[in-house]
Design a protein around this nucleic acid. Structure first.
Lengths: 306, 306
DNA sequence: CTTACAGCATAAGTGTACGTTATGCTTAGG
DNA sequence: CCTAAGCATAACGTACACTTATGCTGTAAG
């Protein structure tokens, strides 16, 4: 029992004639006869009442007709579901990002949603160290990380350049100056993020190189908490510029240039392989490219390892 | 997109491997590869992520899988529905009979229902003259009539011999005698059925042949009414024995033998063609045969024009 | 790093099966 | 009784799908 046979059978049942069905199917009458005969032989049932000459179905034919209609409907449903998927009228996009890189996603997601409003988007918060694994295990399709993953199965694409920026409250002694040496910073209380990250190591390394003591006596669990703490006039913090853009703009926080501490952060989209991605994910990559092109620096899009 | 392709696709999706799917389908691995490749080409979509080597589906593959499962389930549902039909676990039997011949059907229907309790039965009351047409137009599959239809498309089978019997009430003058000549009957009031039927013509003809006047002054619309009327002591009536068997047994009515009025009634099942009948109808014919064999005369089954 | 193996793709050859044209059979209508 | 319509059957060619054989790629082991 095949869809091809059922299609032929339904045509005969609807046209109430072998010859007319053949015409409709752009085949000859014997072809139709043979298909029906084979189907009947396979099922062990007569499907059409030849004696009546009016193409009436037998009881078995009537039963089969219902199922045949359902199956053929499902086939066209499936076809249009695939078209929907391709044209992004449906679909789902699973992303992973950590607290900080998540911020990068927001404007891109905005653009993506505008272009493909029917595609569901889910951003899952994850530790940066685990994102590559999640991509590999199909938990998510795309992830945002701030370092190049070493697993060769994971492709990545540079999507954003960020930098660490030293922030103080507007009322802070350093705020007026607008810059400070690393030695000067050493006299301040450092507010740190209490997650082990490559960022943290870089900062500690820089201080060590300049033989400057680092007073890291306050550790807070979220960037939001760090910002609020600094804003109240408590010490200084080194955070990705992306996370404080709004506050720097509004003057709630002030950035201090520290020549010895120019730490660049490269954000990358990581994914399995272009071909293995869903239509939604591929479309997302396109939006990212367009977004990068439109915004230029610091949204400097550089394709690496395409 | 064919069920065969979908079956292959589902096997691969479930086994998460082309090779294992091939083994399950008793085919070789290249065969599976080719089927999938062709399906993908036809749909213009990659269905399986080859890079992952763990047989994961792409988004299109995931969408297709759902539809494929539904379709294949429908196919097996259809197959078992046909088996149900064949084994008479389902089905429907439409019959037609008139007021009188309906009585013949009752014990047969009883036997049929005992054998095939899941088959629905509907007896439609119809005028004898229209039953052959209804059979031809597929309104019903089987009909019971008391004459051989002349339409060559309608097959018939003799299933029962009945006779006309003259009935009077137990208190009637003729009841004691148990028999009467046609001339004697001529002196009685005849209660007739007010439907034009071949039966009626036969009776009138017999009286004419014996040059006996026929006092047909009461016409009633149903056999039930005629029986009740005669039972009250009003005249006599000629009715099929089948319709008064119960009353003759219980003594509510008395049969009078009339040598000149021996009218035999042959009941026939009419139908289109054996091959065009539903499983239920064919089973019904078998039950009729068995019933006739078991009960012998007057259930004398004679196959005519098989 | 090299090798071996696992797994899918590709190629070439073969058989089945479906399509075609030609024709026969059955039934309805003139 | 003859003709026409409609389905079945026959004969034949082609195309598709299965097979075996082999290539390619990525992964794991030596």
């Amino acid at each position: 029992m095949d869809l091809f046979q059922l299609e032929t059978f339904l045509a005969v049942a609807e046209e109430r004639s072998f010859s007319r069905a053949a015409a409709r199917l752009h085949r000859t009458q014997p072809a139709v006869s043979q298909v029906i005969a084979k189907l009947e032989a396979e099922l062990g049932e007569t499907l059409l009442d030849r004696s009546s000459r009016d193409g009436t179905l037998t009881d078995a034919g009537g039963v089969l007709r219902e199922y045949a209609e359902k199956m053929l409907n499902l086939r066209s449903d499936a076809a249009s579901a695939l078209v929907d998927l391709r044209s992004l009228h449906t679909g789902r996009l699973n992303l992973a990002a950590n607290e900080y890189t998540c911020l990068y996603l927001l404007p891109v997601l905005d653009a993506f949603r505008r272009e493909h409003p029917r595609v569901k988007v889910a951003v899952q918060r994850a530790l940066a160290s685990r994102i590559a694994d999640e991509v590999l295990q199909h938990s998510v399709e795309l992830g945002v990380v701030s370092f190049r993953p070493d697993d060769p199965q994971v492709r990545s694409m540079l999507v954003y350049r960020d930098e660490l920026v030293c922030i103080v409250s507007p009322g802070h002694a350093l705020a007026k100056e607008g810059k400070a040496s690393i030695q000067r910073l050493g006299r301040e209380i450092f507010v740190a993020h209490n997650v082990a990250s490559p960022l943290r190591q870089k900062v500690i390394g820089a201080f060590k190189r300049h033989k400057t003591p680092l007073q890291m006596e306050v550790e807070l669990p979220s960037l939001e908490a760090i910002k609020r703490f600094v804003q109240r006039g408590n010490g200084v913090a080194l955070v990705p510029r992306l996370t404080v853009e709004v506050e720097l703009e509004s003057g709630e926080l002030v950035a201090i240039a520290v020549p010895e501490l120019q730490v660049e952060r490269k954000l990358r989209l990581v994914y399995r392989r272009q071909a293995a991605l869903s239509h939604a994910a591929r479309a997302f990559l396109q939006v990212v490219e367009k977004h990068a092109e439109e915004h230029g620096d610091p949204f400097c899009f550089i394709a690496e390892r395409a």
